[in-house]
Structure formats: C-alpha cells, structure tokens
Amino acid sequence: MRKFYTLLSREVSSYFYSPIAYIVLFFFLFVSGADFYFQISFMNQRPVQYSVQEAFFNSIFFWFAFVLIFPLITMRSFAEEFKLGTIEPLMTAPVRDWQVVLAKFFGAVIFYVVLWVPTLLYFAIFQYVTHQTAAGSFGAYWGSYLMLLLLGMFYISIGCFASVLTRNQIIAAVISFCAITLHFFSGLITFIVTEISSTMRQVLGYFSALEQMATLSRGEIDTRPIVLYVSLTMVMLGLTYQAFQTRKWKL
C-alpha cells in the first residue's frame, strides 16, 4: 500500500510540475466560467423551465471543452516514461505492474477532480449573490458530479490505454481524442437519424452520455450508468494492464 501511495503521489505531483497542467486548468476554468456566465445571461433575458445547474451541465459548448481535456491529461502518463526511459528504473524497482497502472489512472482522476472543484464555487457565488437556488434539488448536484466522475474515469482509462500503446504523446492524444469523441457524440445519433424504432432509440439512449447526464443533472439517480461506466472503466484498465505487460518488454 505504501508503494502504491508513493507512486500515486508522484503521479499527482508530476501534473503540477508540468506546464500542461496549468494550461488545462486555465482553459477549463475559462470555458466553464464562460459557460456559466452565458447560461445565466441567457436566463436573464427570458424565463426558462430548467435550473442554472441543469443548463450549465447540458450545453454543447461545455461538452466540447469537456472531451478535449482527457487527451491532455492522460497523454503523458505512459508515453513519456517510455520516451525518456524512466520506465526502466521504475519497473526494475520492486513494484508490481498493476500498482503502476492504477497509480497512473488514479493520479489522472485526482487531477481531474481538482479541475472540477472551482466550479462548485460558481454555484456558491450564484446563491450568495442572488439568494436563489441554482439547482432544482440538492440531489441534482450529486447527480451531475457523480456523472462527471463516472464518465471522467471511463475517459481517463481510455486515455491511459492510448498512452500505453506508444512512446509518442501526440499519437496517444490523437488516439484517445478520437475514441472519446466517437463515444461521446455517438449519443447524438438519435438526433441525426430519425428513422429508427423507439426500442432502438431507448437502447441507444441507455449508452448516450448526454442523455444520462440530462437525467442525472435533474437529480434522478439511475444505477444503470453507474454500473455501465464502472464496468467499462475496469475493462479499459484491464486492457491497459495487458498492453503494459507486453509493451514494456519491447523497449
């Protein structure tokens, strides 16, 4: 456990040593802040049927920025160690492969969570200034942030997998960007293709991240996406572990 903790803290601190982390942090704060601002000014002009918090998490503008951050967060994780050769001292120390894989994964998850913390402030400030509630219910916060965490873990596991496949960070970023975008926007199929049966639409809806988000951000807790993303994440981490075991031999 101490080894895992050591590896994990090295991963987390390595994010804050690198300029990329600050670029992502700044970019993300800017986009989410802008999103929040525009949603509120839009609501100021006419009455709407949804809460600030629902609007914040369901704008396309916001989602676009959202899929971009994962390749940036994860591209370094394995690729850089392969490139610089630091994988050699790392793996010749008495550590297990799965400890390294999990440390890289959770290191990225922690950084991702840190990205989100400031957005809690937006809602706090909104309530403080306007004396109105930002969300329909308290559960709505839980729902949205739970969904963000689940989806984030899945996309981070995709990013880790892409990074373990290559020693080139750019290639890793492109692979994970394509995979994540493909998954994320496949949920939009139901809007584009209209000629499908309602059962088909339901099945697709079950996998659609956007629809899950819409549900959860209303505060309706649905266990299906939880099961779905936790298992998808475990599958991706399993693949990453397998690829890492064969990959590190090939240096």
Partner: peptide
C-alpha cells in the same frame, strides 16, 4: 543502474532519492 541513467527531470535530487527509498520499501 540502467544505461544512460534515465531520471525524472522535474524532481529534485533529495526528493527523487526519497521517492525511490519509499518504492524500495
């Protein structure tokens, strides 16, 4: 000690050795 001694460039010497000490139990 690997050939060409790859090291984490973003760490300080003491910090790196402390990190390695923890990895080595």
């Amino acid at each position: 000690m690997p050939e060409n001694v790859p090291l984490y460039n973003d760490m300080r010497v003491s910090e790196y050795l402390n990190y390695r000490a923890a990895l080595k139990s």
